[in-house]
């Protein structure tokens, strides 16, 4: 019994990581209907940026992540401004194929620079620290921080979207591109800011990805799939739905792993497929979309 309860708790905590993966994808889709196939590789890129800063400057990963955040914002802004804005339009093919090409470029660029070796963000004693929850169950401090960060990121994103002029411009642009321009919104810039913001969230995700487990340049696509599954399970258009979707995915994986360790990833994918068949609009679809 304890084993199952433990699986549930670990699953919820793991869901925090998946929600962080997914929040950036959800933001981008919400603002510009772009599905970024390089999203997972950008998470891995951010992890390597944090790693490099931490190694060069001898910093704690948390501090290195703080430094990485403005760098990744600029990367996102430039990527959108220079490349991705050119692909947007009625045709789906250009953005998909350009981000797919980008995924291959980032993966292989990282392979060239860092080799295929596994890396990890070393944070000292916090990595192994845990809080006893009684009954022989403990929650790791880093997994707990991951979930709390996911909640914080979603609260902040909701504030930005629903309480600031920037968020108003995001929603207006998403609603009606032509009229948004006539409000003085420079759509290309708004998109670039949105992508910059998404990569800030990606950097937070990368911090926890790198502290919780080993990473190497090839693991990006799998993170893209988890992020995508969390978004769809939760229902498009709501950040809280994305958190719920991440948790459902995390639960499916840890419970699957409890049955047979080899089934962890498969169980997550199957949970996604089941939700897709039974509730095609996700578990928590927004009323208006």
């Amino acid at each position: 019994m304890t084993g199952w309860l433990d699986a549930v708790i670990q699953g919820i905590l793991l869901g925090g990581l998946y929600a962080l993966f997914a929040a950036g994808l959800s933001l981008i889709f919400g603002v510009m209907r772009l599905v970024n196939l390089a999203h997972g590789d950008l998470i891995v890129l951010a992890a390597f940026v944090i790693l490099t800063l931490a190694t060069w400057l001898g910093l704690d990963p948390f501090v290195a992540a703080l430094l990485a955040i403005p760098i990744m914002f600029v990367v996102g802004f430039a990527l959108q401004h220079v490349l991705l804005n050119r692909t947007l339009g009625r045709d789906l093919l250009p953005p998909l194929l350009v981000t797919f090409g980008l995924s291959i470029i980032i993966q292989n660029g990282l392979l060239q620079l860092f080799s295929a070796d596994s890396e990890r963000l070393r944070a000292g004693s916090i990595e192994t620290a845990s809080i006893a929850l009684g009954g022989g169950i403990a929650a790791g401090v880093v997994p707990l921080l991951t979930l709390l960060s996911a909640i914080a990121v979603i609260v902040i994103l909701n504030l930005v979207f629903y309480r600031t002029p920037l968020g108003r411009a995001f929603r207006a642009t998403s609603d009606d591109l032509e009229i948004a321009q006539l409000m003085g919104i420079e759509v290309g810039r708004i998109y670039a800011v949105a992508m910059g913001l998404a990569l800030v969230v990606v950097t937070v995700a990368a911090l926890y990805l790198g502290m919780r487990a080993n990473f190497d340049p090839t693991i990006g696509p799998a993170r893209l799939l988890y992020a995508f599954e969390a978004v769809i399970i939760g229902g498009l258009g709501s950040f809280w739905g994305t958190l719920a979707g991440g948790i459902v995915l995390g639960l499916a994986q840890t419970i699957g792993a409890r049955i047979d360790p080899e089934w962890q990833i498969l169980a997550g994918h199957l949970a996604f497929l089941v939700v897709l068949v039974l509730r095609p609009r996700g578990l928590f679809p927004r009323a208006v979309d």
Partner: peptide, 27 residues
């Protein structure tokens, strides 16, 4: 399954299906 997903999401959906096939056959 995948036809429930529109446009770009269809693309990632097909990728998930391929991953499921890979993981199942690995068993």
């Amino acid at each position: 399954i995948v036809f429930r997903l529109r446009g770009a999401y269809f693309a990632i959906g097909t990728w998930v299906v391929a991953e499921v096939c890979r993981l199942v056959l690995a068993q």
